[in-house]
């Protein structure tokens, strides 16, 4: 009986080893380990054995079963792995084919620049203010020290709607409005981005509609050196640590002293090249100390309060930063232009 069991084990293991399909393994499992299989049959004859022999044979039979079952499991795992490998082989795809395009949009370049400027100044404690695009003559001009017949009004020919209403020519009216709202007794620290309009014929460098970001800081004891420090911090963060700034005297009716700020040319680092017209510097923005008349009209006492203001054009900045060659690109919405700036 013992021999018979060992014989059966060998026979089954051989068959398992030879099997090549899962079905064959199942047949072997049923035929050897099933209720009608030879091992069961052998065990049925146990009754004839002596009480001493019975446990020995029983244990042997279990071992044989276990060995066969183990081998079956191992072989099954092998065959399954092979089958999977084969299946995966047939599932092979050309991974070099293009993927399914995802429809992704993105912001306009001007928005990216404006938001970057906003975030830089928010970091310095500024709030963002907005105002109407159709302005009154008072806020657009008079409150900014540009009375009627002022020669400086020549500088900005405007789109009037009525004698008193016009499309704002700069975002500076928002400064006057904010100061008025703050009633002359608390500090103002704000920037105001927005659309502005001037009577220009559209060409490569002019646009009747464009964007401006202006900043205003009014408090007690604000110094011109603070303007220089804040603009320097902005320039370095926005254009790069290695860029230098330079202030030049200029003129704006709403600031006194007035400045224009240049940054060192990225291309030649101040040596002079065609980008900076041989000067080594590129004009970026205008600003100055808020004119006492402007403070006064907005209800701030110019002997107590002082402040600085500045303004810049995101179109110009974009043209300098990215080499955009025509301001009209910002408004035709040519998708080939817009897409270039949807990247990080």
């Amino acid at each position: 009986m013992k021999e018979r069991l060992q014989e059966l084990q060998q026979e089954a293991l051989d068959k398992v080893n030879e099997a090549t399909t899962l079905e064959a393994l199942q047949t072997i499992r049923v035929s050897y380990l099933g209720k009608k299989g030879p091992i069961t049959e052998v065990l049925r004859g146990m009754g004839k054995l002596s009480p001493e022999e019975r446990p020995v044979i029983g244990e042997l039979a279990n071992k044989v079963r276990e060995a066969i079952a183990n081998q079956l499991d191992n072989k099954k795992a092998d065959l399954e792995a092979q089958a999977l490998e084969k299946k995966l082989e047939t599932e092979k795809i050309d991974v070099t084919l293009p993927g399914r395009p995802v429809s992704v949009g993105g912001p306009h370049l001007l928005t990216s620049i404006v938001e970057e400027i906003e975030d830089l100044f928010i970091g310095m404690g500024f709030e963002v203010r907005e105002g109407p695009e159709v302005e009154t003559d008072y806020y657009n001009f008079e409150a900014l020290n540009l009375p009627k017949d002022h020669p400086a009004r020549d500088m900005q020919d405007s789109f009037y709607i009525t004698e008193d209403l016009l499309l704002r020519t700069h975002t500076s009216p928002v400064q006057a409005r904010t100061m008025n709202e703050y009633k002359g007794n608390k500090p103002v620290k704000m920037i105001c981005p927005g659309k502005v309009y001037r009577r220009d014929t559209d060409d490569a460098t002019h646009s009747h509609q464009f964007t401006q970001v202006e900043g205003l800081y009014v408090d007690k004891d604000v110094r011109m050196s603070d303007l220089k420090g804040v603009l320097n911090q902005f320039a370095k963060q926005f254009f790069g640590e290695e860029r230098e700034i330079r202030l030049r005297p200029s003129f704006f009716p709403f600031t006194e002293p007035s400045v224009e700020m240049d940054i060192s040319c990225k291309v030649c680092h101040g040596e002079g090249c065609s980008v900076c017209k041989q000067t080594g510097w590129i004009e970026i923005l205008g600003g100055g100390m808020v004119h006492p008349r402007v403070l006064e009209m907005a209800g701030y006492d110019p002997t107590v309060y002082s402040g600085f203001a500045f303004g810049m054009g995101p179109e110009r900045i974009a043209m300098l930063k990215y080499g955009v060659d025509d301001i009209r690109h910002f408004y035709t919405n040519d998708v080939r232009f817009l897409k270039q700036y949807h990247k990080a």
Binding site: V102, S103, V104, G105, G106, P107, H108, L110, T111, E133, F159, L167, K195, Y197, H208, Q209, F330, Y331, N333, V335, L338, K339, H342
Partner: peptide, 12 residues
């Protein structure tokens, strides 16, 4: 995110 590109057109 929904796949639209931002445009900026003239107000006039």
């Amino acid at each position: 995110g929904a796949g639209l590109k931002e445009a900026i057109t003239y107000s006039l």
